[in-house]
Design a protein around this nucleic acid. Structure first.
Lengths: 330, 330
DNA sequence: CTGAAAGCGCTAACAA
DNA sequence: TTGTTAGCGCTTTCAG
């Protein structure tokens, strides 16, 4: 077992001081080219890996923290992936945490990120209920650590946010549904005080009303997970026979879908499905689910860009909101 | 904007020295109860959050690093989730990185973890090809940082590993397939030099031979992603008509499934599907895919437990391998 | 262009 | 039980 190689080790071999080595590796222009070359060669030979702990103790850490409620949901998994990619392009490292849908773990993750001296945080909070007011936002504000909200908007001091245009998504999907000339439409929504759900719902209603299709619209309030959607849909099906089902997010659609097939209804044939958020696996099963697809790559990109801009322009820039619009995939 | 609260701040208010505060918060038994209470109260009031950078500069970081090739694959997403849960129960923090299936990013992630002074690393390497010999293993060995391999076994110095019993999984699935009395079975495998794929394949062959079903077995070598499996299956279907398809992992099964439905074959009815790894979404579509399901929770648990044991028993313990067996889900 | 000194926040080691 | 000193590895002054 060897000890970790440090600046002093390289310095000794190169007959210079540690600070020169530091400069050769971080700000090469400040060192005479020959010296610089020699140092870099020695560093490479020794397999030098800088100690971020020591570095971060003084300066900027060049690190951003990311917190999502779950990585099982492909939406967040993809967002995470694009965030990591965008960040690494700009020379930032990402520290990632999952709050596992728990307020305690979310708080915890924030603390850990503060512990690690992150320069900023991108967070998709666990809930967008109106009464969810996590206290860590105040802490972050005090410490001047910028926060970019992802997808879920809440009332809290933060420096920016990247959201979906949920009314627009609903509206577009509604227009698509209207073309289907259905008689009886089941809409499975998210929780009653979710702004995302309500915006999507409003958009859909608007579109359907505009088209005056005359279709009956039944609405179930579930939540953004598949289990409840499945259960409530199953109950609904006992006394009703829709010819179209709309899921307000990917998980809901999957739950409703399951309830329908269990009830003997064949997707596409007996009942048409529509979804906000893509159901990526549908194609594997040969099922067509027209949907509003959101460009998750873009989502991550904007979150990172916005955060880094705020970080580097220090003066707590004007609070910006970026809205991503979805596109219809039929 | 406030500066971060540090030990000295608390110390001043409590009329004690910084080290006492440190002790009150980390090792309370070493401080007089009253003093301890007072300090803890003040710390809480001030919202003290320890600086891990400073802490990690000296001592053990109580942190483990985790690297997986992708989080889009539910297998790894779930593994990650269970690792995080297990680790947090034992008081360790996880730093997580995705190598995005790239050797460079993997190397990078390892370096970053070393930078952060992690006490140990759990890694699912990007490839188990025989010629994949990443150099960082030597580095980690030198630094005495224990490594637990996850799922993918390679020749490299490491202190432990948690793997699936792939021959067993293949065998069990083979037995299940045999019961179906199929005439013509298509098996879509992983890459030719993947030990995981070959073990599963061997197990399946063994089971089928034992049952002397007389079925014809066609084997396609693809890889563990769905795109190639889909493409090769599609080509195969142009000249062949299987009544059963076996996918050697979840991605392969999905790819093969897609090729079949595009070719007009209905799952369950025209062709039976079997898979190693669960296809969780199948139930949403009302499709039954008998499979070998692996307890991913256990996977993560063992990886963490093993790693922490090695970390805490310092003396580079005997190299242990843990094998998880899958169960049939029909 | 290079170096010496100081200090980031925390905690071993050694007093008191 | 508590405090002092020193130092972890690096970088930011300030000098040369």
């Amino acid at each position: 077992m060897t000890k970790k190689v440090k600046l002093a080790d390289i310095a000794k071999l190169a007959n210079v001081s540690a600070i020169t080595v530091s400069r050769a590796l971080s700000t090469p222009d400040k060192v005479k080219p020959e010296t610089c070359d020699k140092i870099q060669r020695i560093a490479a030979e020794l397999g030098y890996i800088p100690n971020l702990m020591a570095k971060g103790l003084k300066a900027r850490s060049k690190t951003i923290g990311v917190i999502v409620p779950t990585i099982i949901n492909p939406f967040f998994a993809n967002a995470l992936k694009s965030i990591i990619r965008s960040a690494s392009k700009t020379g930032y490292t990402c520290l990632f945490f999952s709050s596992d849908e728990s307020a305690a773990m979310e708080q915890n993750a924030v603390n850990t990120l503060i512990s690690y001296n992150v320069d900023g945080i991108i967070i998709a909070v666990i809930s967008e209920d109106e009464d969810y007011r996590p206290s860590y936002f105040a802490t972050l504000a005090k410490l001047n650590i910028p926060v970019v909200l992802l997808d879920r908007q809440i009332e809290a001091p933060h420096s920016g946010g990247v959201y979906l245009d949920n009314v627009d998504s609903g509206y577009k999907l509604g227009k698509t549904v209207a073309k289907g000339r259905h008689q009886r439409i089941l809409l499975v929504s998210g929780s009653a005080n979710s702004k995302v759900a309500n915006s999507r719902l409003a958009g859909i209603k608007m579109a359907l009303e505009e088209c005056a299709s005359g279709a009956q619209l039944d609405i179930i309030k579930a939540d953004f997970n598949s289990a409840l959607a499945q259960q409530l849909t199953a109950e609904y099906l006992l006394g009703n026979q829709p010819d179209a089902v709309i899921g307000l997010n990917n998980q809901i659609t999957l739950g409703a879908l399951e309830a329908c097939v269990q009830h003997g209804l064949r997707p596409d044939q007996d009942v048409a499905f529509y979804s906000i958020d893509e159901i990526a696996t549908a194609k594997h099963f040969g099922v067509t689910i027209p949907c509003i697809k959101h460009d998750v790559e873009e989502f991550g990109y904007h979150a990172v860009t916005q955060l880094i801009r705020t970080i580097e322009s220090d003066n707590s820039e004007k609070h910006a909101e970026i809205i991503i619009r979805g596109v219809v995939m039929a």
